[in-house]
Design a binder for these strands. Structure first.
Lengths: 137, 137
DNA sequence: GTAACTGCAAAATATTTGCATCCTT
DNA sequence: AAGGATGCAAATATTTTGCAGTTAC
């Protein structure tokens, strides 16, 4: 069943090879992907620039979201149902393994609310835990 | 009182102009600084490469820590007492204002523990909240 | 004096932009 | 046919590395 097709259609995007392929990667991926991962997995079938533009489009449409990291490499991961255009609800925790370096979306672990100082209004929060993942111990 | 001097001394680093100046910036700064901020504030008095190396050294020594962001620009901020060499305890929440774009260390807000799935061993966690800061409402 | 630190040059990487061409609708 | 998407080339920006000269201790 062409899930990629539906996602693109629903967001008013043209159905193209590149978009379908990149979307497929995300659907298949366990965790999050960096720009470099995508280039690697598509085997240079698409121009580097196209990958940049596709990722940017997907983020704008709310199909994927960005995950903050401390190593100058933005990670991207599929949004779940609650993400909508222009308004992400990226409320699950991400785990980055220090050993295998994979990033895993812990969909079942929600980001806890924190009490902010007076005057701070939260709109979105993200949490990244580093450590050793299940596979690497 | 030469606080910069003490910090460098304590960490076994040579006292140099560049290090003192960059450290001073962090001590004065409200929030976190990006590499670009530092270059701007030092008015090109130091080589770009020196800034990179100084920041790297400070991170290694546990004087500053990196803050994850989603915009391909690592932010740095002074560590508090609990950071030690090679082992950061960056356990407070960071707030990024959608309006003024400043990043603020909420030193009093600690990152809550989350219950991870079986097999995942946490070593370090970071939390970033985006929204509107106190000054911008 | 010696080891550590810095600046310069240059290489390696990463990202953005403009434009002509091709594809989707 | 028209607008959007892609590829290519090139401009920018960012980060890393090597080495020679300088500085802190």
């Amino acid at each position: 069943m062409e899930q990629q097709f539906n996602i693109l259609k629903k967001n008013g995007l043209s159905i193209t090879e590149g978009r379908k392929k990149i979307l497929e990667l995300f659907l298949d991926a366990e965790g999050a992907l960096a720009h470099a991962d995508i280039e690697k997995h598509t085997d240079a079938a698409f121009d580097r620039v196209t990958v940049y533009r596709t990722l940017q489009t997907f983020v704008e449409k709310g199909i994927i979201h960005q995950i903050p990291t401390t190593d100058n490499a933005i990670l991207y991961a599929l949004c779940k149902d609650r993400c909508e255009e222009g308004h992400h609800h990226d409320e699950h925790v991400h785990f980055i393994c220090d050993n295998c370096n994979k990033t895993i979306c812990l969909d079942d672990v929600t980001v806890p609310d924190v009490k902010l100082p007076k005057g701070f209004q939260p709109l979105q929060s993200a949490m990244v835990v580093k450590g050793i993942c299940d596979d690497c111990r």
